[in-house]
Amino acid sequence: MSIIETGRQARTDIYQRYVKPGLDQLSSFKTVPTLGPGLLFLIVFFFLPIVILVSISFQAEFVAGTVSELTFGNYLKIVNDQYFINTLIRTLLMGVAVATTTLAIGYPVAYHITRTESGRRRVVFMLMIIVPYLTSVVVRTFGWLIILLENGFLNTFLRWTGLINGAVKLVNNEWGIYIGLVHVFLPIAVISLMTSLGKIEPEMEHAARDLGASRVRVVTRILLPLSKRGLLGGFLLVFALTISSFTTPSILGGNTEVMATAIYTYVGYLTNFNLAAALAMVLMGFAVTVIVISNYLGQRRMEVV
């Protein structure tokens, strides 16, 4: 062994034995000050409220500051009432529908923004996405009301063209909620997809075309698989936001209730905090389950492929 090699070996040994453990420890200490504030915030404003909510949902009566007898009564009431079951199913389906639609509409938009060579066009598209966010969601939703009502712009226009006689019912039902939410959450889907599509080298598409793939196959075999993370992330985000959204369903849904509006009814009008808490827990349970399952599927797919 040459002198240089011996020296190098000794240096490696010293590093492994004395320096590295110290560095490792240092880095674990570092996590406390960096994570600390965030962790504290989460505990106070997220974990504690949830614990309180859980405990309320298992009580028959709500008296602030006290804990009465624990019961499954609220949950049994939900399970045995078709109204709640329907509302839950409607909410979850709405989540799937809105998430799928925003991703389908947003995909070409996100693709275009990440691929265009014109800087000005990119800015224009980004502005089109962001500017609606500068207006209150209430205002935007009332805008839809004006468009979609029986005597609104759309129906008037359709009658004028002679396509319909009466009116297409587009508000105070699921359609109203669906249209409103797709509009509200489209930018989120686009932004989530942009991150993912931006990482795909244009060479991938060129190579696929060059090897004989049609444009459609470039999308199905290259772009979609490579943007899977963005699709999954976008889906989960829009799904979670949709099933918990309140403003749009309450304005455009009329008597058509989703979980959030049902919870509001029970808190605001019927002042049954316990049932409302149980409803909130059920909704959260489904949301968490969907997120965990799709995350797991996404991870696994990623490894298999």
């Binding site: 080298e201 060479e203 991938m204 060129h206 190579a207 696929a208 290259i222 490579l226 492929v305």
Partner: peptide
């Protein structure tokens, strides 16, 4: 074409 950075499909 063989691309400069190969453009192999990572998935």
């Amino acid at each position: 074409k063989v691309f400069q950075e190969y453009a192999l499909f990572p998935h």
